[in-house]
């Protein structure tokens, strides 16, 4: 069952590579939140109650509801163009994301460790590099934040692979960090909208040598 969810996650990465609409991008992020919820639930059911509850709440409330709602709010408030505005044709993107998945698959063959589920590794590394790729190839800065969130989802999957043996305290810290950075990014996206009147990355090229 976990395998199905993770493969669905990979398909969602492929969809992200070709989507043109910010809205569907946000929806995919929410969808990934639901997938993460499912995976976390199956993998961590043996964990003690508070820890499990915390992680489940993080995925379902934070990743699935709050973040997409917040991003939608930022997009609406700033009248950001509805397109993700890629630099490269989508066809190339889909090829590259496929190659990324293949490479992470090849990389996973180097693991000689029976404790780790390789599929988690593959999905996490693919998500990481897809996120980076999206950040590199999109013009709209709010899309950069979304790429960052894709990376965070990958990290979450990777941490599930470890079996989440980190103490509660650390989990809280991690969540807090992500939360604060995303909110900060959102706030500054707002500021950029106010000060620069636009969300094109081209406007952020004033700092040169």
């Amino acid at each position: 069952m976990t395998a199905i969810l993770l493969i669905l996650f990979l398909i969602s990465l492929l969809y992200i590579a070709i989507t043109n609409r910010l809205n569907s991008f946000i929806n995919i992020l929410a969808f990934q939140g639901i997938i993460l919820f499912g995976v976390a639930f199956i993998e961590l059911i043996k964990l003690d109650f508070t820890n499990l509850l915390f992680i489940l709440l993080e995925t379902i409330i934070f990743k699935t509801i709050i973040l997409p709602a917040f991003l939608t709010y930022v997009v609406k408030k700033n009248n950001i163009t509805r397109e993700t505005e890629p630099f490269v044709p989508n066809f190339l993107s889909i090829v590259i994301v496929t190659v990324i998945i293949l490479i992470s698959f090849t990389l996973s063959q180097a693991i000689h460790d029976d404790h780790i589920n390789k599929l988690f590794f593959i999905v996490a590394v693919s998500a990481l590099f897809t996120g980076l790729y999206i950040i590199i190839t999109r013009k709209n800065i709010i899309t950069h934040v979304m790429g960052y969130l894709v990376i965070e989802n990958g990290v979450f999957i990777l941490s599930l692979a470890v079996g989440s043996e980190m103490p509660m305290l650390l989990n809280t810290g991690i969540l807090l960090d992500i939360f604060v950075s995303v909110v900060l990014l959102g706030v500054f996206a707002n500021k950029i909208g106010e000060i620069l009147q636009g969300h094109d990355i081209d406007q952020l090229r004033k700092l040169k040598d």
Partner: peptide
């Protein structure tokens, strides 16, 4: 212009099926 990428997605999904088969 969107057709090639749609068709290529099929290849990507087939690759995922391949991964599933390996799994």
């Amino acid at each position: 212009s969107h057709n090639p990428q749609f068709i290529f997605v099929l290849t990507s999904i087939s690759l995922l099926i391949f991964l599933g088969a390996l799994l």
